[in-house]
Every structure is written in C-alpha cells, then in structure tokens.
Write a protein that binds this DNA or RNA. Sequence first.
DNA 1: TTACGTGCAAAGGGTTTGCAAGAGT
DNA 2: ACTCTTGCAAACCCTTTGCACGTAA
Lengths: 142, 142
Amino acid sequence: MTHTVATAKKLEEALRADGVRITRQRAAILKVLSEAEDHPDATELHRRARDIDESVSLATVYRTLTALEEQGIVHRHSFEGTPARFETADLPHHDHIIDLDTGEVVEFRSDKIERLQAAIAEELGYDVVRHRLELYCRRKDK
Amino acid sequence: MTHTVATAKKLEEALRADGVRITRQRAAILKVLSEAEDHPDATELHRRARDIDESVSLATVYRTLTALEEQGIVHRHSFEGTPARFETADLPHHDHIIDLDTGEVVEFRSDKIERLQAAIAEELGYDVVRHRLELYCRRKDK
DNA sequence: TTACGTGCAAAGGGTTTGCAAGAGT
DNA sequence: ACTCTTGCAAACCCTTTGCACGTAA
C-alpha cells in the first residue's frame, strides 16, 4: 500500500472549491501533508511546515487540519497514548496496525472484517456509520 | 450479554492480594464499579461513589481506576469524543458498538473477526498484543 | 476593499501529581 | 508506628479560541 497519491495541487483545488483561501501557511501545510509517507502528528507537521514557511504557527496547523478533516480531505487518528496523527484521505479505506515498540503505523484492509462488522451491527439493529479498528502489535521473533 | 459478575468483594480481594489497602473511598468506588451495568466515565463514577461516601474525591477515583486498570481488573475505553469510560474486566473479551445518538454502548463478540485480525497481523510479521474495535452506529429504521 | 486567515497567548477539558494531613494494618 | 492513601489545588498535555493585525481575492 503506497502513500501520497494526493498532490498539494489537488488538495488546494479541493479547498478552493469550498471557498477556502489558499494562504502561504496553508500552502506549506498542504505540501507537507501531501508529501508525508508516514502518519505525523500536529507538532511534527508544524515542524515540517516551518521548514517551508517560517511563519506557520501551531494554531494554524490545527485550524487547517480541522478544516481539511471537515472537508473529508484528511483523516485524524487518535491512537492510544499519543497525540492525534493525520493522513490524506486519498487512499481507499483501511485500518491500522500500530507497532508498540516503534510507534510505526502499517495500513491494512480486510473486506471480510468489514462485512462481518456490518452483519453484526445489522443483527443488533444498527447501521455502522464509521468504525475504528486498530491492532496494537509487536514484531514477531526478534 | 449480562454485566456485573464481579462483586465488590472479589474486587477487594484482588486488590488486597496486590498489597493495596482497602480504604473507605476505595470500597465505595469498588461497589459502584461492581454494580454498574453501563459504561460510566470517571465523573459519573465519582458522583455515584459520593452517594456512598461523601469524602471521595475525583482524584481518588482516577487513582483507583488507574490502579485497577494496571491490575487488569478494569478496562478503560477511550471512545471518540468522550471522556474515558470504564467497566470491570470480568466478562470475556468483547468489542463495542457506540450509539452515536444516545452514547449507549452495546457489547458484541466475534471470534471470526478476532481470528482474521490475528491472521492479518501474522502475515505482516506482527503479533497482536491488544486491539480496539469500535463500531459507531445509528439505529436502523426509526 | 472586505471578509477571511493569522500569530500570539490564554483558555479548555480530561487526567495526573506534589504536598501536607489522614488512616489502614 | 509506619507507610500508604487522601483531598486539594496546581500542573499537564493536547487542542481550541479571542483578539487585533494581516492578507488573499
């Protein structure tokens, strides 16, 4: 599963389409987001964005991420015991393995699990609006 | 799936076995926990415990919950957008459906999903230490 | 030009912690 | 007695927000 299909350009277009202004700061944040191959938190995104534009503040990083999340352009993941981490929403739906030793995040996808979830909810009289499936793991052997 | 198999007595024993003192405050918190049929948060547990012993502070509720969690006697769930909610760990493993409209929590269990998770992790070179599976749902029809 | 966006610093909300007083064992 | 536990208030951490200034369109 490869990351970063979304280009900064595409993200900008998506925002513009919603009447959102592209400022220097937002451009920097979008670039950093589109280039991220990992799942950085707000502080890390702030650090990276500042390398492009010194003036970007952490508050703006948070405001931009919240806006992007509301547009469905970015996903926010609140894994256990860490600040929220973000990724662009360009990939098809997937869930996450979190390496307990390194914090590294690996993506996976299982239609079977997906279907089972829906069936279980159905049986209890519910529709699944969204779900959260996280596997907290350790490397085998080692 | 019925709740509250754990009696306050059993919880006390479990704590005592670990050299933990049973104070008035802890007794109250354990009683409240053992009688809970829902998934209350710390503030709600505090409210209920105070009905038994006025002197219980919120800090002690948190300290006791943390201790109980460390002994594996209580599970802490950090569902999206709400303070952590707690339940005694006397039931066999299960996952949760969260009703988005009411906040109500319904438990379910799926060995199939469990097995699929393990298989997926295995294939990627990981052992699952623990997982988190939450279905955020709405009632059908209605 | 004019609304929208920004940085800064302060506030928020849930949870944890330092400290001196209190209480199990 | 001796050590663990408590209440209180302050601190924490991540995140959001009020305000006066800046700036994209």
